[in-house]
Amino acid sequence: QKPIVRVFLPNKQRTVVPARCGVTVRDSLKKALMMRGLIPECCAVYRIQDGEKKPIGWDTDISWLTGEELHVEVLE
């Protein structure tokens, strides 16, 4: 079983991306966001920890988040 990260996107959409070492959250999600007309710069990404949303940086190595759920939200 490959290491993955589940990602909840705006508009009730979601995707799953591989959690590859040395790849940033930005690079992992860029294609999924672009297909939906979004760019990382207009969004914020969060991980859910103890039921709370914790913001994470787009430059975080995605392999550190293996098995986690991330939420991407459009910044107002």
Rank of each mutant, 00 (worst) to 15 (best):
K31Y: 03
E76V: 06
S63M: 04
P55F: 13
Y46D: 02
Q1V: 13
H71F: 10
K53I: 04
R47M: 06
S28I: 02
E41M: 07
F8H: 11
V23L: 07
V16S: 06
R14D: 13
R26S: 10
E76N: 04
S28C: 02
L70E: 01
R47N: 08
R26F: 10
E41P: 07
R14L: 10
L9A: 00
D61C: 04
W58C: 03
L65Y: 06
S28Y: 01
L70Y: 02
P55R: 12
G22H: 06
L70P: 03
E41A: 12
L9H: 00
P3T: 06
E68S: 09
T66L: 05
M34W: 08
C43W: 03
G57Q: 14
K53H: 10
E52R: 08
C42D: 15
V17F: 04
E69V: 05
Y46L: 11
R6W: 03
K53E: 09
K2R: 02
C43N: 02
V17R: 02
V16H: 04
S63T: 11
E41S: 11
E76W: 03
T60P: 01
L65C: 11
Q49S: 13
E73A: 08
E68V: 10
G67L: 06
A32W: 03
V23W: 06
W64Y: 07
I4E: 04
G22S: 06
I48P: 05
T15Y: 04
E68I: 08
S63Y: 13
S63R: 06
I56Y: 04
T60E: 13
L70H: 01
R26N: 09
V5F: 01
A19I: 08
V74P: 14
P18G: 10
C42A: 12
K53V: 08
C43F: 11
D59V: 04
R26K: 14
Q1G: 12
G37H: 10
L38I: 15
P40Q: 14
C42T: 15
C43K: 00
L65M: 12
P18N: 07
K31F: 03
R47F: 09
L9K: 00
L9W: 11
P3V: 04
K30Y: 03
G37Q: 14
G22R: 04
K30D: 08
D27S: 09
F8N: 13
C42I: 07
P10M: 01
L75E: 14
D27W: 04
I39K: 15
L29R: 00
G57Y: 05
T24A: 06
T24S: 09
F8K: 11
P10C: 01
R6K: 07
E68D: 09
Q13L: 04
W58P: 08
G51E: 10
V7P: 00
L33N: 03
L70Q: 01
P3Q: 14
C43T: 11
P18D: 10
L65E: 07
K54L: 11
T60H: 09
K30L: 05
L65D: 03
K54W: 05
G67Y: 03
E69G: 06
V74T: 15
K2I: 15
P40K: 10
E69M: 05
D61Q: 09
R14S: 09
T60L: 09
A32K: 13
I62P: 01
P40G: 02
I48F: 14
R6P: 03
K30I: 04
D50F: 05
L9Y: 02
D61L: 06
H71D: 05
L38H: 08
G37K: 15
I48V: 14
K54M: 05
W58D: 05
M35G: 11
R14A: 07
Q1P: 03
K31G: 05
L9V: 01
R14N: 14
E73R: 07
V16Q: 05
R20S: 11
V74E: 14
G37D: 15
I62C: 09
G57D: 07
K54E: 06
V23T: 11
D59R: 04
L33S: 02
R36I: 05
V74Y: 04
Y46N: 14
R36H: 05
K12W: 06
V23C: 11
K30M: 06
D50Q: 07
K2G: 02
R26D: 03
V16A: 10
V17H: 01
W64E: 14
D61G: 04
V74W: 07
V17W: 01
L75Y: 06
A32Q: 06
G37F: 04
V7D: 00
P40E: 14
K53T: 07
E68N: 08
H71M: 10
D59L: 07
G37S: 14
E52F: 14
N11E: 12
K12E: 14
V45P: 11
W64M: 11
G22T: 03
P10Y: 01
